[in-house]
Amino acid sequence: METAVTWIYFVGVAAFLFWIWGLLSGPSATQMEIAPDDLSGAWPLTVDEVQAYCPGGVMAAVEVNGKRYGINGPASTYGEQHGWPPIEDIWKQGDLVPRVSISELISVVRDRCVDA
């Protein structure tokens, strides 16, 4: 009986440590990359790919060459307060509208985001 309890304890601790390791390691950079093929509509940015970044849970941002850009309201406000460049720096101009829609990119980022 004592051996069974020890084994259950060991399995429980191992499962807990594996779970913690998964939380700390997060998805790899490859899993967070977003490129034009990931969107069904027009790619809204002037760069070829971005990294998804979601600080604080409600913010959606992208990272390009070490710079972070807020792509939704909360992230844009946060970025302004923390010295991030404005998304307009890499946001494509539209033909008939001022800017190409960024809403699908926001949805994809939120789906792939990690807290960092």
Results as ranks from 00 to 15, higher is better:
73 G>N: 11
8 I>H: 09
29 A>N: 12
86 P>G: 07
36 P>I: 10
60 A>T: 06
75 A>I: 01
8 I>E: 11
37 D>Q: 07
80 E>F: 09
90 I>F: 03
8 I>L: 15
82 H>I: 11
91 W>R: 11
51 Q>W: 02
81 Q>E: 04
33 E>W: 09
26 G>M: 12
24 L>T: 14
72 N>P: 03
107 S>N: 06
45 L>H: 07
50 V>S: 01
61 A>G: 06
94 G>T: 04
86 P>Y: 06
107 S>K: 05
112 R>S: 03
35 A>T: 06
12 G>L: 15
22 G>S: 14
54 C>N: 03
93 Q>R: 15
37 D>H: 07
94 G>R: 03
108 V>C: 00
31 Q>T: 06
35 A>K: 08
95 D>R: 08
82 H>F: 14
108 V>W: 00
112 R>L: 05
52 A>V: 11
111 D>M: 12
39 L>S: 07
9 Y>T: 15
54 C>F: 01
57 G>Y: 03
109 V>P: 00
77 T>S: 10
46 T>H: 05
16 F>Q: 13
61 A>I: 00
4 A>N: 13
115 D>N: 05
9 Y>V: 13
88 E>N: 13
43 W>Y: 07
66 G>R: 09
12 G>A: 15
82 H>Y: 13
27 P>E: 05
43 W>D: 02
103 S>F: 11
87 I>C: 05
71 I>P: 05
16 F>D: 14
69 Y>R: 02
85 P>K: 01
85 P>A: 03
18 F>N: 11
82 H>G: 08
28 S>L: 00
75 A>R: 01
28 S>I: 00
34 I>A: 10
67 K>Y: 08
1 M>D: 13
51 Q>D: 07
34 I>S: 09
13 V>M: 13
18 F>V: 14
93 Q>A: 15
103 S>G: 08
77 T>Y: 09
39 L>F: 12
104 E>H: 02
57 G>C: 05
56 G>L: 11
77 T>C: 04
18 F>L: 15
81 Q>R: 06
116 A>N: 05
3 T>L: 15
9 Y>G: 15
50 V>R: 01
41 G>D: 09
86 P>I: 09
18 F>P: 05
52 A>Q: 09
23 L>T: 04
70 G>W: 08
47 V>C: 04
16 F>M: 15
39 L>W: 08
50 V>P: 00
68 R>M: 02
40 S>Q: 10
42 A>N: 08
93 Q>G: 12
81 Q>W: 05
87 I>E: 04
102 I>V: 04
32 M>F: 02
28 S>C: 00
98 P>L: 10
21 W>C: 07
83 G>F: 05
84 W>Y: 10
70 G>F: 10
108 V>H: 00
75 A>P: 03
54 C>R: 00
65 N>Y: 04
103 S>D: 12
53 Y>Q: 00
73 G>H: 12
12 G>K: 13
45 L>S: 06
14 A>K: 13
94 G>M: 06
88 E>M: 11
84 W>D: 02
6 T>Q: 14
35 A>R: 08
49 E>F: 03
3 T>K: 15
19 W>C: 12
26 G>Y: 09
30 T>H: 01
27 P>Q: 07
93 Q>L: 14
100 V>E: 01
46 T>E: 10
36 P>N: 14
22 G>W: 12
40 S>P: 01
101 S>K: 12
69 Y>E: 01
7 W>P: 05
26 G>F: 11
61 A>K: 00
104 E>M: 02
74 P>M: 07
68 R>H: 04
23 L>N: 10
114 V>W: 07
71 I>N: 08
112 R>T: 02
103 S>M: 11
